[in-house]
Design a protein around this nucleic acid. Structure first.
Lengths: 380, 380
DNA sequence: AACCTCCGATGAAACGATTTAGACACGGAC
DNA sequence: GTCCGTGTCTAAATCGTTTCATCGGAGGTT
């Protein structure tokens, strides 16, 4: 077989490697139906047992060596047979027989948001270490979807669930989620939440309040005196906590409370809020020297608004954010923010949810670290 | 029951809603072991059937009404029984009996990379519409991990697999992946790839070459004459394609080939490459007026390097990227780039993999759109 | 030689669904 | 009165593993 470039010349023995030679791998001739009808169904454990000339039980033990009491010689024969037949255990059957799976569910509001994707990355890495698979559930912040996913994960008999999602003050929804969760827990599942302290499960608590407060103190230390906060929707807990923390710090340090404007918890929300803030400031003359956006995305929107309005961030006006999103570390001017170890948070959440269960709710606190950059220079 | 604030007063009937009244929901008293031993195991379909006074078969039909031939009255009785017992179908058992699952696997190199997370977002949304769950596999670009995940997805009898991952010229690895994939396909699975044309499966082809070429043409049109390309590792296909496309366009338009520097396919790689480029330029006097980084992350790194070196991007030097990552749309100066409909690509990949199988390989092309911003002003 | 112990392997019963083939009752047509 | 559909429901087989009793035999004690 000289060159394999003529697809017609390809024979059976070439199936595994020959087509690699081509720049573009070719699909070998599949016969979608025939192969199944021809009794070529996936090899099962009984097939392996028969091939090796042992019983089902022995084959099972030899393969997953649970309570390894199988003669080495037999073990080898079974392994060889499995290999020869291309045996792949059926995880669903295993799950049924064992009564537990190797799957954990992860609920996020929006995986394309770097906040969540970074958490997901950390969690996925940790999961891989434990040999677990991650079910990604993108709720889009819709309560129905969140509940649907929760139900689905329960059906799947997921070993554990991590909620990193929408964290609203919607009592009705929260209570329904709590219900689903407790019945899931009753069924032997494990669950943990990230920064949703209202849920009746173990939680990775992010110190939003403290981080924002520390930021406020630093800003006052830099010489700023009149602040405004760009917040998300009122019922979004993260936003509310950060707002409150900042306000508290600011009040304690300056004796005045910061103003605030709220809009969407997104880049565009930040831009709109900032635009409004600038207009109002011009109108009533009560201009601020410093703006805190409750997350980096909003802060970046604010930067854009400033640019458009001809306000130079840094000299004219200080802007700070929260999260320290990696891809945003290069905006100009460098954005002062509160760094959150997001990947670590994901890792921690999985650790928490896999740790041995305890009667009382476990909490694991994570603190942010203020990172000063050029968007908040010392005030002259 | 006036105020429920005293946990001790809580009785059985309050289980579903009462604790919601508290600011912080409380875990109801769980008895981790007892409840299981007390025969309180999850309700099964037989339980429901018994409760409703019908047979297993009827209960099954009534619930998932496949070939609906069950009397409405009975149907209702079954539904009521299921509801009363809090019945949750066991997806694993269903998967076994039906021989198929509701799960699709998604392999990405790094979910915390906005490129992949945006694709994942699009795919997840589409999956939700089809009632499918997404298994997220974060390969970290490690071949062994990729193969492990593929095997795991096969064990799980995933309905389909989408590969959006590492796309290297490593022939050995690619061939092993191809092997795993074909045996998965033989087992009745479906698979598709994103921008990995060497794999023997349906593919969403991203026109990296054309996009980069178009970008080159536009830049020449703006008056640039001496270009350099910041590439990723040589064996990374995306990088190579974009490099080649840009080079081709540039060569055709100016008659000269662009120089290039390669480094990691990341922000830091871009920064290092740019730094080296600037140094070399100063040394041999062959300075460039325009730099194309093969993705936005590298471009942003390049911007940082320029800033540090005191080179003003725009007036002094043009910089362009590729992808149009959403969170990077606000860097300053605005980054010229080639916009890719990433979410759409994820959606498309799922569509492709769920579409009815065909004998020949299906390809779906996606083109980028050049977006000019301030980082590449018209050359005076 | 009879008895007791282990050790290693096996048979068969779960696990929780779906689904096929069969049973039963009821009418209408001849 | 017999025959044949038709419409519902049930019994039982099946899916692929795990695991709990068993059970046969080898080896050591008395």
């Amino acid at each position: 077989m000289s060159h394999v470039s003529a697809p017609t010349r390809r024979s059976e023995e070439t199936r595994s490697t020959a087509y690699v030679i081509l720049g573009c791998l070719r699909l070998q001739e599949r016969k979608p139906k025939e192969s199944q009808l021809a009794g070529e169904r996936a090899a099962t454990l009984s097939d392996v047992a028969r091939e090796a000339g042992v019983s089902l039980a022995t084959a099972s033990r030899a393969l997953n060596g649970s309570d390894r009491v199988v003669r080495p010689e037999l073990q080898e024969r079974v392994l060889a047979a499995a290999n020869k037949l291309g045996y792949t255990p059926n995880a669903n059957a295993q799950a049924m027989a064992r009564g537990s799976t190797e799957t954990v569910g992860l609920l996020v509001k929006d995986i394309s948001d770097p906040y969540f994707s970074t958490i997901a990355g950390g969690l996925a890495d940790e999961a891989e270490k434990h040999g677990l698979l991650v079910m990604l559930c993108n709720t889009g912040g819709q309560p129905e979807r969140e509940q649907k996913f929760l139900a689905a994960l329960r059906r799947q008999r997921s070993r554990a669930i991590v909620l990193a999602g929408s964290d609203t003050a919607d009592v009705r929804h929260t209570s329904e989620v709590a219900d689903l969760l407790t019945s899931y827990l009753d069924g032997g599942g494990r669950a943990a939440a990230i920064s949703q302290p209202r849920l009746p499960v173990d939680t990775v608590v992010i110190d939003n309040h403290g981080g924002a407060k520390a930021l406020a103190e630093q800003l006052v230390g830099l010489g700023y005196r009149r602040a405004a906060v760009l917040t998300g929707p009122e019922d979004l807990l993260v936003s509310a906590e950060r707002h409150a923390g900042f306000a508290e710090g600011w009040l304690e340090a300056t004796g005045t409370a910061p103003a605030y404007v709220s809009d969407e918890f997104s880049r565009d929300g930040g831009r709109r809020a900032m635009t409004r803030l600038l207009e109002e400031g011009r109108n009533d003359g009560a201009e601020v020297d410093c703006v805190f956006a409750v997350n980096d995305l909003m802060a970046v929107g604010a930067l854009a608004a400033c640019r458009q309005a001809g306000v130079e961030v840094g000299p004219d006006l200080a802007v700070a954010g929260f999260d320290d999103i990696a891809t945003l570390r290069d905006v100009t001017p460098g954005l002062t923010t509160v760094r959150l170890p997001l990947a670590e948070i994901g890792r921690l959440a999985l650790e928490l949810v896999l740790g041995k269960p305890s009667a009382e709710l476990r909490k694991r606190s994570v603190h942010g670290e203020v990172v000063l950059r050029e968007s908040t220079p010392p005030r002259s």
